[in-house]
Design a protein around this nucleic acid. Structure first.
Length: 916
DNA sequence: ACCGCCGGGTGCC
DNA sequence: ACCGCCGGGTGCC
């Protein structure tokens, strides 16, 4: 039925056993080896095709792995092979060994593979007549600079790579005329129109206190279906007795593992968290709700003394008929220790029996504990079997800001429902696996998760019913510890919640698919070969496949989406305007002085070609100019005159000090590795700032000496200077007597006063990167009798919630203004009470501003939203806005290749800023 | 007969 | 493997 399909009779099994005895590579360890190799799969970006080669796979009869015509195979080096240290193993997509590469060819390939000169890929194009060997098309991919080395190496051993147009990849090369633009458009649309309305709506379980909006009921229905339905994963289809994968041409007898979960990529504010809470409560097992209320009564009855320490929990369905049926027997199959314990229960006559409960949760700790349980339940030694389902503990939700999600649980779950939600966070967190297993929901942060990872992490030892990644797009670098920690969580159902599923490129998608365990793309090699490379090379089919893939597992609606001709959510309008601010004469004079001085300095660096070496200095100059635009007193605390540095060490100290100052002032600086705002900033010895994980990756991937991505100086992990995320300036209380105003302050106050006259109930966000500026603004606000709160990074978790509640409360005498530091707070921050946003100073990253606006322009906002950005006319701020725009264009154009040349573009930016 | 040729045994790495 | 390779048997035409 499938040409070129081989299977071997059991008559040879004796040999196989003999063989495996000699060479111990059981199926388990083999697939582990392949998985390990696949997880270390390097990024294939920038790989070019060196050529093809027809090779031979031998030893087919010794292995059970079968291959279809057109199927891709994996090639794994086996340096430990006792017969030939050059051995190259051939395996199919599922990691079953098919055979080996012929000895002579393997010898040539081993050198290339071991030295990472090329990645060799195999595809079986044509079948074979015999059952001993088969032809295999090999293709060699690698960095341009290795091309000749590889070709010569292979040629020397008598293997000539064909560079002609032979087809060797699984998908035919099918380049587009204008890959860039078309690709960009298609990719933009990748997450569009993923509204699955056929599922209809689903009512949430009773325990959900907040009524769901229609689109949330749809999402709930879709999520339940994704968890319960048995549709084949994308690209799999049934062909007769077999399951066949269209893309990899792999076929299997067994039904491929389904993805129970997916990506909920609704826009921010559409209620992803609420929908997920509804899912947790509504779809427990067999589509039934989480048995919350009654379960608590049972638990109290039997375990009030908490003596049962739980290693696992089980749900026992007490027969379909409930009270009526008398004799039941239970078979518990504990997945932890594989023991199967059978026992029986009998119902009591009259009164409330266990069978009154449709579900009963029993905690099982160990067989002793189970015996304890048995002695407590009314068991009868001779009874009929009934159905028992063993389940794992419930949900692990990974989030950025714990408290927000916990609040959401409190908000959306009915008060009379006792839901055990545990915040796994903080130094005092309960690390007992038993305790965590007994919770309905465990919430933790990505940081805690990765800190625990590899260190007897209790969360990794639990088999969760459901794992949910909130703001899942934050994990996208597969190299990062955090990603590894996330991928290692065990769960039956897996969800990613994200308002922005793709931030930079196709590459970022892999992490999501790997988390969802979407076979076979969770292995990097298949993802690279089938999706990533074709897509980045402009292959239309590759893009189509990606679209199909994403469509199958994603639900995304935007604020503007319509369902059945009606808007999803009626969102109020948003108006953004720029208000130009004129500096006063004295301000202008001071500004020009600083500008000329800075321009001279930077101009000198430019001609000397030392801009990047003096990067911290340049940033300090820029930030001073930006501070001049806001308020002169922002500069007062800076003793940053260059002076004459005695030694290079002293010079470096000063540069680092300057950078600390730039960061401390709250400026939203950019990391040149990820091109995003710096998270967990660290300063290198050469005074450049990066996210800690980003630079750690740079250092980690470098073989010998790592070099700074900006200036190529040598960098070492132990020389990185930490910068506390929210380090604040020493004193906040500037002397109110000495207080003076500035043009920007005037501009803001003018707006606020005008607004108060028009409608005193309007609330405003006043946003600045400079927390000190917020302090300065406090004085005139008080003076004019505005009631305000302040929200910045220094606030404790507790204080944060308190401040937000205060601001959001509709009380008449409540605060009308929130002084907000640009970077403070998580993405989940809800500030819908405000409808006016004032940006006091422009940020480098326009997305940061957008995020800030979305905190009030989101679900629940009833008024139209007005955003005002103050920009000082004829200043560095104007140039920043221009660069913001250019950057957005650039990101759109340069889609697919993330980091064109940061050194050059950063230089250009600095020059443009200083008008050089 | 220090070769060629024949035909059986055999077979991944 | 309806191959190649190895090594033993064999040997004019």
């Amino acid at each position: 039925m499938f040409p070129g399909r081989w299977r071997f009779g059991s008559d040879r099994h004796g040999e196989v056993d003999l063989f495996t005895d000699r060479y111990d590579l059981s199926a388990e360890t083999l697939s582990q080896a392949i998985r390990a190799a696949a997880s270390e799969e390097p990024d294939a970006d920038g790989s070019v095709l060196f050529g093809h080669l027809q090779g031979t796979v031998v030893g087919l009869r010794y292995y059970s792995g079968v291959v279809n015509q057109g199927e891709m195979v994996g090639l794994v080096r086996q340096p430990q092979n006792q017969y030939d240290r050059n051995a190259v193993m051939v395996a199919n997509i599922y990691g079953n060994q098919v055979g080996h590469i012929k000895r002579e060819l393997a010898a040539a390939m081993a050198h290339v593979m071991d030295n990472n000169l090329a990645k060799v890929e195999g595809v079986v194009h044509s079948g074979t007549k015999n059952s001993f060997t088969m032809p295999l098309m090999l293709s060699f991919w690698g960095k341009e600079e290795n091309q000749n080395t590889v070709k010569e190496n292979m040629a020397r051993r008598g293997f000539k790579l064909n560079t002609g147009g032979g087809k060797a990849t699984g998908t035919k090369p099918n380049a587009l005329q204008h890959p860039g633009s078309l690709l960009k458009n298609a990719f933009d649309n990748l997450f569009d129109g993923l509204m699955e309305s056929e599922d209809g709506e689903k009512q949430a379980a009773e325990a959900v206190g907040t009524p769901l909006l229609p689109h949330q009921k749809q999402a709930l229905s879709w999520m339940c279906a994704r968890e319960n339905k048995s549709a084949l994963p994308p690209f799999w289809e049934r062909r007769g007795e077999l399951y066949y994968n269209r893309l990899t041409c792999f076929s299997a007898k067994e039904i491929p593992e389904r993805v129970r979960g997916g990506i909920l990529a609704d826009d921010m504010g559409l209620g992803k968290t609420l929908t997920t809470i509804a899912l947790i409560l509504t779809n427990f097992h067999k589509g039934k709700p989480l048995p919350v209320e009654k379960c608590v009564r049972v638990a109290n009855e039997f375990f009030s003394d908490r003596r049962a320490v739980c290693l696992a929990s089980a749900i026992i369905k007490c027969g379909g008929g409930g009270v009526g049926q008398s004799d039941k027997s239970l078979v518990l199959n504990s997945s932890n220790d594989k023991e199967i314990i059978a026992f029986h229960i009998d119902s009591e006559e009259g009164g409330e029996s266990l069978y009154d409960f449709k579900y009963l949760r029993i905690f099982i700790t160990s067989s002793q504990c189970l015996h304890l349980l048995c002695s407590m339940l009314p068991f009868h030694p001779q009874s009929q079997p009934c159905h028992v389902v063993f389940l794992c503990p419930y949900v692990c939700v990974c989030v950025c800001v714990c408290v927000c999600v916990q609040d959401q649980f409190e908000q959306h779950v009915r008060a009379n429902v006792k839901l055990n939600v545990y915040l796994y966070y903080g130094a005092e967190r309960n690390r007992s696996k038993a305790f965590l297993s007994s919770q309905d929901v465990v919430i933790t942060t990505y940081n805690v998760l990765s800190a625990d990872f590899g260190n007897k992490s209790p969360l990794h030892g639990i088999n969760w019913l459901r794992v949910v990644l909130d703001e899942g797009h934050v994990v996208r670098n597969p190299q990062a510890q955090m990603s590894k920690a996330v991928l290692d969580l065990k769960g039956q159902r897996r969800w990613i919640l994200s308002g922005t599923p793709i931030q930079n490129s196709v590459k970022d998608l892999w992490m999501l698919l790997a988390f969802l365990r979407l076979k076979p793309f969770d292995a990097r090699e298949w993802w690279n070969r089938v999706i990533q490379r074709p897509v980045t090379q402009g292959d239309r089919a590759g893009l189509q496949n990606l679209q199909t893939l994403v469509k199958c597992i994603t639900l995304r609606r935007t604020k503007g989406s319509e369902v059945n001709g009606r808007p999803l959510v009626a969102m109020p309008e948003k108006t953004v305007c720029v208000e130009q601010v004129e500096l006063s004469q004295s301000e202008r004079e001071e500004y020009e002085l600083a500008r000329n001085e800075g321009r001279n300095t930077i101009g000198r660096y430019v001609t000397e070609g030392t801009v990047l070496r003096n990067y911290a200095d340049v940033l300090a100059i820029l930030i001073r100019l930006r501070q001049h635009c806001c308020h002169p007193d922002l500069l007062s605390k800076t003793s940053l005159d260059l002076g004459a540095a005695a030694t290079p060490a002293e010079m470096r100290e000063r540069l680092i000090e300057k950078l600390r100052f730039v960061l401390a002032s709250g400026s939203d600086e950019e990391c040149s590795v990820c091109l995003d705002s710096v998270r967990l900033p660290v300063i290198t010895h050469c005074a450049h700032v990066y996210c800690r994980p980003c630079i750690a990756q740079v250092i980690g991937t470098e073989q010998e000496t790592a070099r700074c991505p900006l200036c190529r100086s040598e960098i070492k992990t132990n020389e990185l200077v930490e910068f506390p995320q929210e380090e604040m300036e020493e004193e906040k209380n500037t002397n109110p007597d000495k207080w003076r105003t500035s043009s920007k302050v005037q501009a803001l106050m003018g707006n606020l006063l005008r607004l108060r006259c028009e409608d005193s109930s309007i609330k405003c966000l006043v946003v600045s990167q400079f927390t000190r500026f917020l302090t300065i603004l406090e004085t005139p606000l008080r003076e004019h009798g505005f009631s305000f709160v302040r929200f910045d990074g220094t606030l404790s978790q507790k204080k944060r919630t308190q401040v937000i509640q205060e601001f959001q409360s509709p009380a008449a005498d409540g605060p009308v203004i929130m002084l907000l530091s640009l970077k403070a707070g998580g993405v989940g921050l809800n500030l819908t009470a405000a409808s006016h946003v004032y940006f006091m100073d422009p940020a480098w990253n326009p997305a940061t501003e957008e995020q800030c606006i979305d905190r009030c322009h989101r679900l629940g906002q009833t008024r139209n939203v007005f955003v005002t950005k103050f920009i000082v006319k004829g200043s560095v701020e104007e140039n920043m806005v221009k660069i913001q725009k250019q950057k957005q264009d650039l990101v759109e154009k340069a889609f697919g290749c993330r980091n064109p040349d940061r050194k050059t573009s950063r230089m250009d930016e600095i020059k443009a800023l200083m008008e050089l």
